[in-house]
Write a protein that binds this DNA or RNA. Sequence first.
DNA 1: CTTTTGATTGGTATCGTTATCAATTTGGAT
DNA 2: ATCCAAATTGATAACGATACCAATCAAAAG
Lengths: 348, 348
Amino acid sequence: MSDPDISSPPTARDVAKRAGVSVITVSRVMRSAPNVSPAMRDKVRAAALELGYRPNRVAGALRARETGLVAVIVPSMSHSVFPEVIDGIDHGLSGTSLRTVLGITHYDQAREAAILHDLIAWNPAAVIISGLEHHPDVHAMLAGASCPVVEVMDVDGDPIDLCVGTSQQEAGELMAAHLVETGRRRIGYVGAWGERPDRSRKRREAFAAALTRRGLDLAVHIEDAPSSLKTGRAGCAAILAEHPDLDAIHFANDDLALGALFHCRENGIRVPEDIGLAGFNGIELVGMITPRLTTIANPRFEMGICAARMLSRRLNSEYSEGDQDAQVSLPAGDTWHLPLHLSKGDTT
Amino acid sequence: MSDPDISSPPTARDVAKRAGVSVITVSRVMRSAPNVSPAMRDKVRAAALELGYRPNRVAGALRARETGLVAVIVPSMSHSVFPEVIDGIDHGLSGTSLRTVLGITHYDQAREAAILHDLIAWNPAAVIISGLEHHPDVHAMLAGASCPVVEVMDVDGDPIDLCVGTSQQEAGELMAAHLVETGRRRIGYVGAWGERPDRSRKRREAFAAALTRRGLDLAVHIEDAPSSLKTGRAGCAAILAEHPDLDAIHFANDDLALGALFHCRENGIRVPEDIGLAGFNGIELVGMITPRLTTIANPRFEMGICAARMLSRRLNSEYSEGDQDAQVSLPAGDTWHLPLHLSKGDTT
DNA sequence: CTTTTGATTGGTATCGTTATCAATTTGGAT
DNA sequence: ATCCAAATTGATAACGATACCAATCAAAAG
């Protein structure tokens, strides 16, 4: 009849007409739904191919009330940590029909709320969000969400629903024990950017408490700038200016600690003889440089994988294609606590 | 009438009933469409708030035929380069109503095609994809897409639509000129992972050609493993084993070059006296370590920004909220060629 | 040969919103 | 007061797919 090429993209209706079948049959074929005869399938597939038909998922999502979208909300892409978590999520989601929609908050709570508001309007199959502390509005939206919510990164707090991460409490304790055991007594801590995200503050508090239990004080210095090598260098210089007698400094992350290492090297401060340095995260670089940096390995990629796995299980029936291994199903509201371990380098 | 709390989330219909107006008016208020009286707006807003109404964007997208989703397809999240581009895109898109949907191909062309197929089914407002070389299916889908397509990263080739990036040709030439000018004559090149993505191959070929024009040969070694410090160390060892007399090595990226730097340090090879090392990308670390690594600064974040800006202009009328600066509008099919510059360090 | 069962196929309504156009109201110009 | 244009509101019909249920058909059971 009318020109099929110039008009808008073909719909199931067009394919149905072409193949001489009903629209619903086209729908069934495209979704690989059961109870379609092979002959019919081939006929419809051929017609679809000829017309270049592509099902419109927006329409499908509306009717079926399921988008298969996973809203992933992270504070930043500047550090390698969140990309690695996202990579893990992507790995864990492969084999399902779920897709990632990304939101970056830039550590801004108002923005976090706006983004979540926006993403929830898409009726996502799940939300994965970083951290356990949120803006009240965000908390309310998550609690009221009609889909599973996974809070990733830390487990010290009250999860709304699902949770995967490592214990900041444990991290602080681990590092305190290590530094004290290796003879350090005058210990400092350097953080950055007003201790965003919150979990770095939790870790510092746990670290300080662990030292207190051992009868030691903690000198704290927080830089304003975001974490970077440069900030670490500045932070190291600053805390040493105020507390010249420190014999060890723990940094909020490896980037800061590496910056500090460069500061020490440039200023003739011997590491670990004059001062011990330690970071957090366990990025690849720390094991390559000389001296190797002491740090705590934080399984970022695995967290992403686990978050995706928890979702796959929860949403099981709907999205699994290649079925997952039939493990013990997790009770609702459960959390997955991943292990941390100290990676002893040459700097302590 | 019937319990509104237990049933499914409220719709525009519910709000309309509550406020005593028509559904279309609710729609207009929620979209901040023009021609709504202040009194009406307040009344509807109040009703929406009471019911906790949230417009369903899936339905809206279906009827309005616009999702406001931007499909972003990158090969990897493991290197910092793509997260930085994504960060740039996110920055450039802020202030518009566009949202990022992410696809990670893991350098797998089949996967790239599958992901694109999937994302296009969402009727995105735009596609941003990495690189200019694609699987034939991918090329066809992009060419046939009914939305703008931005190819980011490199500009050496035939863009399908919009394009933002730097010239790999120029990069190769720039580094060849630098090394020859600083007296290097026996030059090697180390790449990784079968030279994925393609632009690293282009860069190597341009580098080799530029050396040829200057009457010099190039020793090439490609590692199988993905780029990392470890791979760089191994690659450096391997190429030196085969060509012990090299006086300079150019690496496909900074990670490899840094790994090589560690190899040299561990093996008593003096840099830059015995050998010159140079990378590509300009990551923060190269300027912090001693010796500072010579590299070419590749504006990754800016590429993301520019990609988003090009889209904002093209899609202007539909999505701009705070209006962009009225600049010269770019003709269709135009490409944005960003400048590269050599960052001279201490390793050459 | 009839009845029953299960596998295929199709008709119709609907998901929740917005485009389109018609109806109504308001305010100013004549 | 009368009329016309602009502003405001509403009724209706999509958008393109899938859920639900009815109808048909072939094969198995009696």
